[in-house]
Design a protein around this nucleic acid. Sequence first.
DNA 1: AAAACGAATTGATATTTATCAAATATGATC
DNA 2: GATCATATTTGATAAATATCAATTCGTTTT
Lengths: 231, 231
Amino acid sequence: MSNLKLLNNCESCNQGWKSFKLLTKSELQLINENRYEAMFKPGEIMLKQGSPTSSALFMSTGMAKSYIEGNKGKNFIIGIALPGKLILGPGAYVDSRNSYSVAAITPVHACFLSFDIFRHIVRSNGEFAESFIEDLSSKSLWTHNRMVSLVQKRMSGRLADTLLYLSDDVFERDEFEMILSRQELGEMTSMAKECVVRILKEFEEAGVVSSESSRIKILDKERLIELSEIG
Amino acid sequence: MSNLKLLNNCESCNQGWKSFKLLTKSELQLINENRYEAMFKPGEIMLKQGSPTSSALFMSTGMAKSYIEGNKGKNFIIGIALPGKLILGPGAYVDSRNSYSVAAITPVHACFLSFDIFRHIVRSNGEFAESFIEDLSSKSLWTHNRMVSLVQKRMSGRLADTLLYLSDDVFERDEFEMILSRQELGEMTSMAKECVVRILKEFEEAGVVSSESSRIKILDKERLIELSEIG
DNA sequence: AAAACGAATTGATATTTATCAAATATGATC
DNA sequence: GATCATATTTGATAAATATCAATTCGTTTT
């Protein structure tokens, strides 16, 4: 991991979190002066569960997976971290520990921002605080939906949900590089990797998706949504 | 549901949320003047999923269940709402809809507080905002733990977790009234009610818990924790 | 190109969990 | 206390999912 300062400042960063628009010039400058820029190669851990939450993380390019290291070494993938979104686990405000790990999937370019300063600004800037609360809330809402999906749907419904997530929220297109291995898809949908293979094959045979090498294409989105709803 | 004003004001309410201590006199008064007090009988719905989040809710006495109405009428119980804790779903800051329902289990005495005013104070009082963020964060952390438990553990581990939750967090003692039906225990642990019965019986036969009528006693907490860890 | 490695796939089987139907218990109501 | 409704329990069975072992495939290394 190299650590050159590649961006001049946060103001010129076009991947900045939208909430940063609510900061004053001096607040933004404070953030800017206390950031640390880094590059990660695929597979490298950017944030380790259990380590102190000394910083909030922003990605300017690349994709990463957020995951919880659960019981007996089994991981649970929370979701894909994307540029322009805040990465700051709930532990920051509870026990000052990162509540999950984050690992780069593609090459990642990211900034670590001082959490102390972040916290200070949250206290003093009400609009920013509200915006942060909105961010926390929408993540929480997403987690709730996720939980209901995982708990109430069968494998095909869960896998359909994850394919829709990748298509709608991550790549914003119907054809995309499958950046997760079958194992990882399993860690996201609570399935054994072999079952991922089987259900995916079912989807292919039904003409819902096609996959050549590592590329996935959603052929029949209607049907995929239906599969998600059937559960 | 009757609606007498039984408490004079928030200041004298000894069940108030701890964050309220951070409010100024005038802020607390504002809250107080815009609250609406209500009593609920067991089974009555206090907050309905999907309805507008016009208010935050505080219970001064009683217990309620928070639950998501999921796919095909199946419920998922998030947890037990207790006096002195804020009830305000993440939807408030996202789509202005209650993201889950809340129903009284015992008789409940509660106050509805204007969300507009709550929101206004969050913006203007940084300490209060931070305290609210801490609250959101700890709920979020709890949800993450919950999700890992539900996804990675087998039935006995999940049920052990829920019994520990009731004992440690809800009743704060090892013997308590089982306020949830087997059906509801199932909605909390993602199990069929018949399976709840069976596993509970296993626990009894192993001398881990005892239950006479609707009273549950944890006899061997060590072992129950072990069961939770085994998963 | 051959070898080596890990990921993906497949089939067979075991385990876990849900469902169904029936019986029993519990509690509320008259 | 009899009756009704509902919750709990039980046993039998079915469905869903995981595991194991073997093979194939794709990449990288030699």
